[in-house]
Write a protein that binds this DNA or RNA. Structure first.
Lengths: 192, 192
DNA sequence: CGACATATTGAGATCCATCAACCAATGTGG
DNA sequence: CCACATTGGTTGATGGATCTCAATATGTCG
């Protein structure tokens, strides 16, 4: 994975470790653990993304429709934070779907509750900001990947940096995540 | 431009209008207006991006090197906020350059000063967060553009949404901003 | 004017998508 | 437990979009 992301992730962990008990309890009190069966939609396009999902177990993906085809934007595993960024930030209807690829258990926090908690516990603002920055760096990195590298190179980097994705997710989704057709991905994999 | 971005921009304006005088004065006191001659580098790769530049006049671009070629990542005009996001957020060395394409005047704020100002004026935190969200939405939008649309479509959308870019920036930079070769851009433009 | 940056045009090569056929594994209803 | 559908993946043939290299044109500024 991008070393900047690794670094930043550890900074977030460190920051969380410094949160006072009141803030942690506030977080806990607004967190609801829910389960979603394989194949179900945790968020549908048209809805406002009012929840953030921190995956406890299972795999999920975020996708949108383009000319009738599903384009996978992001794939989530344990500990990942799933949400439709634009929809969440603006509280406007989402263009994206979030689908459970396996049975999923997630810690769910409602947007309003989190906003309120931030008011009462300013330490959470810093956390919010850090999560936001993390996402910004991630998206930027991903865009650079898409811009700079060929299909083959992108696949190789995925193999290198996040092999668990390839092991546990159908190739169809990986192909569209990489921005290539399933057939091309299949050929890339068969070469050597 | 993306309607979400327009909406969010107005929300930021609204928020700024509610800032108390102390916060505004704090901002003012840490702002330094500087000028950069055409062709000069406001940020070099390898340096840490310690400043944010709010352009008052002129045009600038951000780029990185890939296999010796300059790839333009972003183009800035009046009122735009120029910085290398990853480098600024983490205060780590930048991979990007920021170059003045014309003589540029900018309101410059140092990272440390802004952090301090945020401590003293919590209202500025919210502003920081909003700017961050704005950038997140922008990057996401841009990535979607790159993923979903062909070179021709991307050019057309640029024409439609931000025609001032095309009018005032050499095609070389526009081509690399769009992720296509100069020759392809030239052909796209000549068709019809 | 001459020099250097910027843009256009042409020809050929390359990457990748699309369409279509096929295959293997898994699941399901009778 | 068999016949068949479904899902996920492979393979081949073809075409289109875009890149690269190279030559030429246009513009601009000291």
């Amino acid at each position: 994975m991008n070393p900047d992301l690794v670094l930043y992730d550890s900074r977030i962990q460190q920051y969380v470790a410094t949160l006072d008990i009141a803030a942690l309890e506030a977080l806990e009190s607004i967190t609801e653990t829910k389960t979603y069966p394989k194949g179900s939609l945790m968020l549908k396009a048209g809805q406002i993304c009012r929840n953030s999902f921190e995956l406890v177990s299972g795999i999920a993906r975020k996708y949108h429709l383009h000319n009738g085809a599903e384009i996978t934007n992001e794939i989530y595993f344990e500990h990942d934070l799933a949400l439709s960024f634009g929809s969440y930030a603006l509280q406007r209807p989402s263009e994206e779907y979030i689908e459970a690829l396996t049975d999923v258990t997630a810690r769910v926090i409602h947007y309003d509750s989190f906003q309120k908690a931030k008011e009462e516990h300013p330490m959470l603002r810093q956390l919010d900001l850090m999560l936001l920055e993390y996402y910004g760096i991630w998206v930027e990195d991903r865009m650079n990947q898409m811009r700079r590298y060929s299909a083959t190179e992108r696949y190789k980097q995925l193999l290198e940096h996040t092999p668990h994705i390839i092991k546990s997710v159908p190739l169809t989704y990986i192909a569209s995540y990489l921005g290539i057709s399933l057939e091309t991905l299949s050929r890339i994999r068969s070469r050597r």
